[in-house]
Amino acid sequence: MPGSGQSNDRRLGLKASQEVVVVAISVVLFVVFSATLNNFLSQGNIIAILKNVSILGTLAVGMGFVVVGRGIDLTMVAVMVVGVAFSIWISTWGIDFTLAVICGAILVAAIGLFTGVMVAIAEVPPIFATLAIASSVYGSGRIVFASDVLYAPPDIAWLKFVGNGSVLGIPMSVVIFGAVAALMGLFLRKTRFGRLVYATGDNPNAARTTGLPTRPIIVTQYVISALIAFTAGIIMTGLVTGIDTRLYNSSLIYDVLLVVVLGGIGLSGGQGGVRNVIAGTILVGILTNGMTILNFSYTSQNLIKSVILLGALAIDAIINPRDEQTSQSGDI
């Protein structure tokens, strides 16, 4: 339909404009903070920004992948902390840490598989399914581990390299984030499965009617999202030598959503990509670091980011209004 094509072109144009605005705001904030904050441009602070951004950005790549398919994954932080904590926990039994990490990856993949089945086959709305599963995963982990903080073995060379190593002067954590982002970008844009994800997110009913395997696609998305969250957890463990499971109770999952929506990936699905995630990650990373240097309280930072998230959601609702087809296919 001509009208539909024009509407899609308009939406893509607005999304591109949003991405440009986000990049411009990032540049302005960087310049302002550089000029007004004494320690902002210090080598230590720039490295801190990059390392923090690597964790947030890696999580956001997984979240963005799910959102493109018209879903949402609130299990990511729970999966991250419990999966890594499980790996550390079983390594205390005398199991090689690398093997323990593989076991942790299998565990989180199983959680992602279960989440995908609940969403795709049981047809539980994603926001409710992932919220309930996240709480269950975290609660189970707290009971099993009986400790809030678990520390990795101190003599793991590759884990030290992840946390403190660098490639051509770039922190290894940032290199891993870049690799995850690049692979996901290629996966979404250059593979048949990626195109199916966009088709499913854009119009689930039409995708199902034309015979596309929408249920396996959705299940696979949640498995991949869980594995990406686990990767972010490994990065964090390398940086701080352990994992604090109480991170689940922080605002990190909302920061991830902020990155995705602010960057320009529409919650209605079928649009956006890794480039949007990178744009949103840079902005949120710079903003958070600047507020920290300015000694904004944790509560104040969360308030500011919440207001920004609300504004981004409002903009997304305007750019991607809920039409009849969307309402029939279900909310996220």
Rank of each mutant, 00 (worst) to 15 (best):
S147W: 04
I25H: 09
G169A: 05
V124P: 04
D323E: 11
T326D: 12
A78F: 05
I55N: 01
L313V: 15
V174T: 14
T288I: 02
I265H: 04
V32Y: 05
A182I: 10
L310M: 15
T58L: 01
L14G: 08
I315L: 15
G141C: 08
T210I: 11
G94A: 11
L168E: 07
S34M: 11
G266S: 15
A122K: 09
Q325L: 09
Q271C: 04
G266I: 04
S306L: 13
D244R: 01
S173H: 02
D73S: 07
L239H: 10
S166L: 07
Q271E: 13
A182N: 03
M1R: 08
F40P: 02
L168Y: 13
I176A: 08
M63D: 00
G178Q: 04
G104P: 05
Q271K: 06
I315P: 05
T92M: 07
A181S: 11
P125D: 07
Y138V: 03
G266C: 07
I315C: 12
I127M: 15
T214I: 14
A110G: 14
I143Q: 12
F33K: 00
R195I: 02
G69L: 06
V108L: 06
V21M: 12
D244T: 08
T326M: 06
G285F: 02
V27E: 04
K15C: 04
P321I: 09
L247N: 13
N302D: 14
A134L: 08
K190A: 13
